[in-house]
C-alpha cells in the first residue's frame, strides 16, 4: 500500500467512526455518556472507557484515538494540570477535553497552557455538543495550501 493509499484509508476510517476515549473513575458516568449520545449517528462514534489515567495512557499507547474526554478529578487527587501533560508526554497530539461537574475554579482559565483544547460541564454534554466538538477538533479541515508543504 502506498503512502497516499494509507492516508486515504486513515481518512476513510476517520469518516466512518470517531474513536473517543472517555476517562472517568466513575463507571456510571460512562454509562450516562453512552445513553446521552445513543442517538448520535452522524458521525458514528465509538467510545472506549478508562477508569484511571494509568489505564488511559496504556490505551493511548496501544491504539489511535481521535478525541479524549477526561474527567477533571481522577483518583487519587490529580486534576487536569497533572493528567493532561502526562497524555501529551507520551506523544498524544489529538484533542483533549476536560469535563467536570464544576468548571468554575479559577485554575480552569489556564486550561490552554496545559495542552487542553476545551472544557465543558458534565451536564452540558449531549449529541449537539459532541457533534460541535467533533466538527471543531476532529474533522476540521486544514487548508491544503498551507499544510506541511515544505516537508513534502
Amino acid at each position: 500500500m502506498s503512502g497516499e493509499d494509507e492516508t486515504m484509508s486513515a481518512e476513510a476510517t476517520r469518516r466512518n467512526a470517531v474513536k473517543v476515549l472517555f476517562v472517568d473513575d466513575e463507571f456510571i458516568e460512562f454509562r450516562s455518556l453512552k445513553k446521552k449520545i445513543a442517538d448520535l449517528s452522524e458521525p458514528r462514534v465509538d467510545v472506549e472507557y478508562s477508569q484511571s489515567i494509568g489505564d488511559a495512557l496504556d490505551k493511548v499507547k496501544a491504539s489511535r484515538f481521535d478525541l479524549i474526554l477526561l474527567d477533571n478529578r481522577l483518583l487519587p487527587n490529580a486534576d487536569f494540570r497533572e493528567t493532561v501533560p502526562e497524555l501529551r508526554g507520551i506523544g498524544y497530539t489529538g484533542p483533549i477535553g476536560v469535563i467536570s461537574t464544576d468548571i468554575s475554579g479559577n485554575y480552569f482559565q489556564e486550561f490552554p497552557d496545559y495542552g487542553v483544547d476545551f472544557r465543558i460541564g458534565k451536564d452540558e454534554i449531549d449529541v449537539q455538543t459532541l457533534q460541535h466538538i467533533i466538527r471543531e477538533y476532529v474533522t476540521y479541515d486544514v487548508p491544503d495550501f498551507w499544510k506541511d508543504d515544505y516537508s513534502a
Partner: peptide
C-alpha cells in the same frame, strides 16, 4: 518542524 512535531514539543494538540 511539522504541526505534529510542534504539538509534541510544546505539549499541545495538533489542532491548537
Amino acid at each position: 518542524k511539522t504541526s505534529a512535531e510542534i504539538a509534541i514539543i510544546l505539549g499541545l494538540s495538533e489542532h491548537t
